[in-house]
Every structure is written in structure tokens, then in C-alpha cells.
């Protein structure tokens, strides 16, 4: 358990709804759900093969105080941001955003499932991207292909080789990126300073929110 997680669990004791309201982005909307289920039914992913807990159920679990189950659930990570739920919700809940907010909070607490593909992609993409301010596509692809082991990576690479060759031919993929070359931002230092400032602001805001609670 991360330190933050322990801290939060202690602070909100048995009021998980309040914790979500105060800590998760858009969490204050959760209480407004009336359990009609239109979000769950609207989710394009829910038929193949479906999430463990669709949004409306996640909201009910939050109200029922099922903290561990919600925060460790892979469900929020399944969202494709299609916004069907958002536009159909009769209570106008920004469901897509709420799901992302909860997912982000779970990640922050260190409770998000470790090798969940969406989470892995987001994390890898982010780490890759902030280095130079541009995505190193070859390295990103590599780290995604090889996430489940060397042999799996080779296999996946061979599967995709025609696509890759096509991209190279069309000059959409620079093979030299594998060696660290390739495009990058002009002011990499500036990007890093900007991100550091954003983190600082975010921490301050969350701290203030937590203080107020």
C-alpha cells in the first residue's frame, strides 16, 4: 500500500463517496446518478467481452463504500472515450470524465492494476513522450510489443512487419528512432520545466482540496 493510499483511507474512513468527490476529478458528480443503467448499456465495449463493473455499477459501489474493489478494478481503464454514456445520461453526468478521474485517482494511489493494457499504454506513452516532447514511435512500439516477454514481442513484431515496412516506405516511420535519433522538440528543457510547474500546481490544488475536507 502506498503512503498516499494509507493516508486517504485513514482520512475518509468509511466515506468513500466523499473521498471520490474530493479526490477524483469530476468525482462530485457520482452522487447524482439515479441508477438507470443507460451508461452501462451504451458502452461500446460492454459486449466484447465487457467490463467487470460498468459506470453505473461503479457509482453504486462507491456509494456502498467498496473502496478496494473500485480502486483496484480494471473497469475504468476500459473506457474508449466514445462519449455515448455522457450524451445519453438523463442526469447529464460527465460519465466519461468521471471514469477517467477515478482511474487517475486509483493510479495516483498506486492501486491501479499493474499490467492493465490501457494503463500500460498510457504510462509508456507518457514516459516516452515527455523525454523529448515528441513520441519516439519505434521505442513506444517496442515497449508495447515486448511487455509480455521477449518471445511474445518477436511474434508480435513479425505479425506487424508489413505494416511497419509500409510506414517506412511512406516515410511515416523513422527506423533510426530505435537508436535515439528522430524528431524532438526544439526546447526540451522548456518542456520539462513546464511539466514540473504543472505538477507543482496540481499538487497545490489537490493539497488545498484535501485541506478543505
Amino acid at each position: 500500500m502506498s503512503e498516499l493510499n494509507q493516508q486517504m483511507a485513514a482520512r475518509y474512513k468509511n466515506n468513500f463517496l466523499k473521498e471520490i468527490e474530493e479526490q477524483a476529478e469530476m468525482g462530485e458528480w457520482v452522487k447524482m446518478c439515479m441508477q438507470c443503467g443507460v451508461c452501462s448499456g451504451s458502452c461500446p465495449t460492454h459486449f466484447h467481452p465487457g467490463w467487470e463493473h460498468p459506470p453505473q455499477e461503479i457509482f453504486m459501489m462507491i456509494r456502498a463504500g467498496k473502496r478496494e474493489e473500485v480502486l483496484t478494478s480494471p473497469s475504468m481503464w476500459m473506457c474508449t472515450s466514445c462519449y455515448n454514456c455522457y450524451v445519453r445520461c438523463p442526469r447529464k453526468l460527465p460519465i466519461t470524465h468521471i471514469m477517467h478521474g477515478i482511474a487517475e485517482y486509483a493510479y495516483r494511489l498506486g492501486l491501479a492494476p499493474k499490467m492493465q493494457p490501457t494503463l500500460h499504454l498510457s504510462q509508456t506513452f507518457w514516459n516516452n513522450c515527455i523525454k523529448t516532447g515528441r513520441v519516439n514511435e519505434v521505442r513506444l512500439t517496442q515497449s508495447l510489443y515486448f511487455k509480455d516477454g521477449f518471445m511474445a514481442g518477436i511474434k508480435k513484431g513479425l505479425e506487424m512487419k508489413d505494416v511497419a515496412l509500409g510506414l517506412i516506405k511512406a516515410k511515416r516511420l523513422n527506423i533510426l528512432e530505435a537508436l535515439g535519433f528522430g524528431h524532438k522538440c526544439k526546447d526540451v528543457q522548456g518542456i520539462h520545466r513546464m511539466l514540473a510547474k504543472a505538477r507543482e500546481l496540481e499538487a497545490k490544488r489537490k493539497g488545498a482540496k484535501a485541506q478543505a475536507a
Binding site: 441508477q35 438507470c36 443503467g37 443507460v38 452501462s40 448499456g41 460492454h46 459486449f47 465487457g50 463493473h53 460498468p54 453505473q56 455499477e57
Partner: peptide, 13 residues
């Protein structure tokens, strides 16, 4: 009709 029976999360079509 597509949706989810919210009593226990049962999907239907």
C-alpha cells in the same frame, strides 16, 4: 433493445 439490467449487471440484446 440493447442495455444492461442494473439489478446485478446483466447485459441484454
Amino acid at each position: 433493445c440493447w442495455g444492461v439490467n442494473t439489478e446485478g449487471y446483466k447485459r441484454y440484446a
